[in-house]
Nucleic acid binder design. Structure first.
Lengths: 347, 347
DNA sequence: AATGTGAACGAAACCGGTTTCGACTAAGAG
DNA sequence: CTCTTAGTCGAAACCGGTTTCGTTCACATT
């Protein structure tokens, strides 16, 4: 691979500034970085000159000298996995915006193979391109977490893992969310409530199904009519599960889905099979994607703030970088039942 | 702001390797970078040792020495602008994946104020954090383009600008797309076809409306029944425009929308007003978002490959970096009419 | 045997910052 | 009028690579 020609930039360097002011670069550097041993007079002189000439320190040079990259890495799965969701873009948006506040940059890397491979993380660690990671879509046994822990490399997860006590994390309380959703459906008089899960590999799937089971268990509904179906968090997965559920002799009157995409698939098939929504069938999703509001009927869902997710993980990670020794922190946020129209009373 | 403590990494450095092998770091460097003046024997010895010890060059050091950041920047608008679309995440996914092939990283920055401000670009240029930019959602008169051209800084746009001959760009042929869509509707027997535009600030809006006008002009339809409405590329904008269009004495029998979000808003209002789709009203969108397929009826749209968009802009930019003097290149791709169910014959 | 040649590597400068340490100066203390 | 001391700044090392230039040595040449 032929090299990119280097075009030394004509940007002003610290030595230019030093020459101009008759100082040494060490002094310039300390003046700009607020050291106490620089007189107020020269500090002001330096700052003024820096502004005048538009001096901005060379990031590569700073990074080398400081031994820091001031960059956080995030590894995305290949898009194919969830093309239906705006989560990733909103999450990245929030993360980068919040990182910028702290003077950090966001490096986005796309995984070529599997989203959970360790390899891209290794490369980024060894090449010293990032100071920390944000990991999302966590697994219970997560190799990425294992690797970074073994390297003692800073990171935070969005989502819990089996090693919850050994790292910082932020998560939405999926269990509680599905408890709420389930009891809402029970209150609405539904007797046959089904659940479509998804992404069993994700730890989050367990919490969601637990919430469902817990409330079904507490109720006096007939368990055999409250079926749990597997899914894959895609619209297609919802379609398949819906076929199986709705073609039963006693089909559910309400279906709780692990995410909105699944719910959309369910609604599609339900309509094809002649179910009216919400009269014959209530459908609840999870994610709160904006497009759900434009469905017919508008999708009822559990929504949460992605902006908050980004902000929280960034705060946790920055604190970790600042104080590596501090005990690990975690935070849980809640999803809100957003009833828009795809759910109703059981008649 | 207190500084992050520096934890000098225990990663192996080039000097460690040099010591270990009894060579100098210059020799190690040249051996690993394929210089001709290193004997095959030592080259192999060096490579072997590098693998054995897991040596990976420090990126900050390389970047400083090379005067390159090997990083491409992209500045995202604050999410509020288009929460309905998966474009951004797919685009980023494709870009980062394609950049990785060339050994480049992707730096994602989020604009705090306006998407079209120059300021974040300036900061990234002056701090030497990136070697080039990918700009999207271009304006006809684009300050970002003006700035980067004035600095002679490499970039490529996704979307055309007024200074089309002065930079590399990739775009979808919006004019042709809307020509096709319009003539499709004409062929289906529609006599009253309306258009809802959007994002007038974007250059792309002009091409789309031009395509519409051109085909309406060529036809013998009554122009007064082929209304053009403004929009803002949001669902809300579609709703507002739909109200105005459909509450006319002679409402359109087909509405062509500048994007899918708008089309969803239109469909929502149309249904509320009692229009059956597609029997009473055909609606066409643009973008090809996956979720459109789950609408009722599934949204007909003009779709294109976002992966391709990412790949093309990356190729253009990398070539520019490799050969800064070459004449500018551009490429146009086409959108495909994807008829899913929201359009039909005019009865 | 002296000279020329090319292959292979070492030495050192350089990239542009940061940080430690020491020197100088002026003011305050005795 | 010396001696400290604090306040300022310069000098230089350092971060970890890359690259230029020159040296060394083996070997072929005459």
């Amino acid at each position: 691979m032929d090299k990119v020609k280097k075009v030394r930039n004509r940007e002003i360097r610290i030595s230019d500034l030093a020459l101009e002011l008759g100082l040494t670069k060490g002094t310039i550097s300390r003046a700009l970085n607020g050291y106490e041993d620089i007189s107020k007079k020269t500090r002001l002189r330096v700052i003024e000159a820096a502004n005048k000439y538009g001096y901005v320190p060379s990031t590569p040079a700073r990074r080398l000298a400081l031994g820091l990259s001031e960059t956080i890495g995030i590894v995305l799965p290949k898009i194919s996995s969830q093309p239906v969701n705006t989560f990733v873009s909103e999450f990245i948006n929030s993360i980068s915006s919040n990182l910028n506040k702290y003077g950090y940059d966001l490096l986005v890397h796309t995984n070529e193979s599997d989203a959970f491979e360790v390899e891209p993380y290794q490369r980024l660690v060894k090449s010293r391109k990032v100071d920390g990671f944000i990991i999302f879509r966590t697994l219970k046994k997560d190799k990425r977490v294992d690797y970074l822990l073994s390297e003692n490399f800073p990171f935070v997860t969005y989502g819990r893992t089996a090693r919850i006590m050994e790292h910082d994390w932020f998560d939405i309380d999926g269990e509680k969310a599905f408890e709420e959703a389930t009891s809402h459906l029970i209150k609405m008089g539904h007797k046959r409530i089904s659940f479509i899960g998804g992404g069993k590999e994700f730890f989050s799937a367990q919490f969601r199904i637990q919430g469902f089971r817990k409330m079904i268990g507490k109720s006096n509904l007939e368990k055999k009519h409250c079926v749990e179906m597997p899914g894959d968090l895609s619209g297609k997965g919802g379609e398949i599960a819906a076929h199986k559920l709705l073609e039963q002799k006693f089909p559910p009157t309400a279906i709780l889905c692990s995410n909105d995409a699944t719910a959309l698939g369910v609604i599609k098939i339900a309509k094809e099979l002649g179910f009216r929504i919400p009269e014959d069938l209530s459908v609840l999703g999870y994610d709160g994607i904006a497009l759900g509001g434009y469905m017919d009927p508008p999708l009822s869902t559990l929504s949460f703030s992605i902006e908050e997710c980004g902000r929280e993980v960034v705060d946790l990670l920055i604190n970790r970088l600042k104080e590596p020794k501090k005990p690990f922190k975690s935070k849980i946020a809640f999803a809100n039942l957003q009833l828009r129209g795809s759910d109703g009373e059981n008649s």
